[in-house]
Design a protein around this nucleic acid. Structure first.
Lengths: 181, 181
DNA sequence: GGGTACATGTAACCGGTTACATGATTTA
DNA sequence: TAAATCATGTAACCGGTTACATGTACCC
């Protein structure tokens, strides 16, 4: 149950229309919780019905016309409650780890190329995050809000570094002949 | 599309019934791809229909009776192809990172306790993985299959270590007063 | 007025989750 | 024979994905 909270957060940062939210989910927030425009429109409908947000008044028909939303007091309260709520971390669910496990049974053909490909993708993502860090979090800025957002970004950065190191390790093990430890 | 492949892997390691698979998913394979018994039964049906596995012959009615499955040649081929296939890594989707981001907007009330709780959970998980590593991967064992499985486990271990470090960092930032860098 | 970009929306499907139903086997 | 446990299964729901439909605004 996180998409509605992601949207509330985004709308609090800046009231927006569905499409604007979609674009913003393609950057910033979407780095940690992606969503398509269909999901977003559906969720905006639910949030409005629940009284958490409202569409800014605009005359005439709605279809094809921009519709801006803002967060109501009840929405802010809901988000505040969620921040302090108790939600267990989800167990790992990773297809690549699973594929290595399968490779232990049926052989590693084609796996090395795929690991190299993933390595390149993670290196690219890391570079992107580091660029954002340089742009958005220069050492002199230091409000409480910025620090929290920076911690989130550091999470993304260190996760990419984890994958890069792990992939390098996996590739080394793949290439190593048996019993040469 | 990973659950069928997880099941094929498990069945190749050892032919099993649905409930046995469920129990094994609660350990080993389930550490990286969890599944409930309902998912597993549904998927076993699909895999059988697709000709990837077959139920070992047994007389009489099926309901309430154990039903063992084994992997057919087509199933092994499917799994082999999947190991070498091209599948992009999924973008991060983590509710806790999102909650920190929300906290930057609505405040951090209740967050510190939640971070400490997650820290304890990850430390517990790490201890469990390290225990498995000690039991299953003593230095003297060194077949190619074991090495691959060990790499997978190392991934789990290092992921837990990542979370532990990140949570410690986040807690430190939460506690630090503004502009004291 | 035709094309393109902007903007909102519907429908069908798919995998994962939760709750419940039913039959077989073991044991007190 | 009743209860507990093993074992397979159905049904409803929910969030995420993919494909498609519809309407507006602007520019050539």
């Amino acid at each position: 149950m996180s998409l509605p909270h992601a949207i509330l957060t985004a709308l609090l940062e800046k009231p927006s229309s569905g499409l604007e939210l979609t674009h913003r989910f393609d950057r910033s927030i979407g780095y940690f919780w992606s969503a398509t425009h269909q999901q977003i429109y559906r969720e905006l409908g639910k949030l409005e019905e629940a009284g958490f947000i409202r569409a800014l008044p605009s005359p005439g028909p709605t279809r094809g016309r921009k519709k801006e939303y803002e967060v109501l007091a009840a929405g802010r309260a809901e988000l505040t409650a969620w921040v302090g709520s108790s939600e267990d971390p989800k167990p790992i669910r990773d297809a690549l780890l699973l594929r290595l496990r399968a490779a232990a049974v049926v052989g590693t053909e084609g796996l090395e190329a795929e690991l190299r490909r993933h390595l390149a993708l993670h290196e690219g993502q890391l570079a992107e995050y580091e660029e954002i860090e340089k742009r958005h979090f220069p050492p002199e800025r230091d409000t409480a809000e910025d620090r929290l957002r920076h911690v989130v970004l550091r999470g993304g950065i260190d996760l990419e570094r984890f994958w890069i190191e792990w992939l390098a390790h996996a590739l080394a093990e793949l290439g190593r002949p048996p019993n040469s430890r």
